[in-house]
Simulated assay, not measured.
Amino acid sequence: MTTRQQFWTLARLTGLLLLIVTLTHMAGFQIASRFVIAGDFAATSAKIAQNEGLYRLALLSYGASSLLSVGLAVTFALWIAPFSPLAAGLVLGWRLFEAICATVAWAIRFAMVDNQITPNLLRQPGAEALHQVLRNVSNAAFDLGAMGLAFATLIGFFILFRARLLPRLLSAIAIVGATLILGSSIVTLGWPDTPIQSSMAFAVTLLSNLGIGVWLLVRGDRSQQAKLLAQQA
């Protein structure tokens, strides 16, 4: 395989993994959110108990997204490494940090299911109090993971923007989404009672990821910089 083909292969593999990670994350969120009734522990527990298998499948989809993001981090870092080895290392490190935090958060969410739907010695008041503690811990892990995702995206897509490895509009949208995620995650982590909507930030990022994933899967890396590096190699 030539160096130019390697660039194209890494770009397409990055696009494929980006699509899979984004779609599994969105599927998990859409399914799990239907079970949650804000502020009502008993009603949420009853809905989960009615279809526990589907709820666990949603959590599993979330977990798969976090684990697959490790592969995405590796291919993305390898793709941009010729343009900036330091940036590639930082992207890989922050994405691994994100994967670890998200995996811990989803492990806690799995543990919360039994506490919600299975009778235990704590009874409902104690179970609800434990649920709140576990939820706060998992939310903090999610916020930390989201910050890791934001830093990795800002660094990686700045390199893509500067090197024109993608249409600059796509890179710019990804950077805007990452900036919004970073800001909202810092606020919710430091001041959890602050009424702030982070769904818009994640919506921008997820939708841009779908567009970028499709672009890379179809086009690969055909930038002038990649061709130049291939010629130099």
Rank of each mutant, 00 (worst) to 15 (best):
M1F: 11
M1I: 11
Q5P: 14
Q6L: 14
A11V: 11
L17Y: 02
T22A: 02
L23N: 04
T24I: 00
T24R: 03
Q30H: 15
A32G: 11
A32L: 11
F35C: 03
I37C: 00
A38K: 01
A38C: 02
G39W: 00
D40M: 01
A43E: 05
T44Y: 01
S45T: 05
I48S: 00
Q50V: 04
N51M: 01
A58R: 09
L59F: 03
Y62R: 12
A64L: 12
S66I: 12
L67T: 05
V70T: 15
G71I: 08
L72S: 05
T75V: 01
A77V: 05
A77T: 09
A81M: 15
S84T: 06
P85L: 02
A87R: 06
G89H: 06
V91M: 09
W94G: 11
C101I: 04
V104S: 05
W106P: 00
F110M: 15
A111T: 15
A111G: 15
A111Q: 15
A111F: 15
I117A: 04
P119W: 03
L121T: 12
L121C: 10
R123E: 10
Q124E: 12
E128N: 14
H131K: 14
Q132W: 14
L134G: 01
L134Y: 09
V137P: 02
S138T: 06
N139A: 03
A140C: 01
L144F: 13
M147I: 08
M147R: 09
G148V: 07
G148T: 12
A152M: 04
G156P: 01
F157M: 00
L160Y: 05
F161K: 08
R164W: 11
L166W: 02
P167V: 08
P167I: 08
R168L: 08
L169T: 14
L170Q: 01
A178H: 07
T179S: 12
L180P: 02
I181D: 08
S185Q: 07
I186C: 01
G190C: 05
P192K: 06
D193C: 08
D193R: 13
T194F: 12
P195D: 10
M200Q: 13
A201N: 01
F202H: 07
A203P: 07
L207Q: 06
S208Y: 11
G211D: 07
G211Q: 04
I212M: 03
G213R: 09
L217F: 07
V218R: 07
G220W: 09
S223Q: 05
S223T: 03
Q225F: 10
A226G: 07
L229V: 12
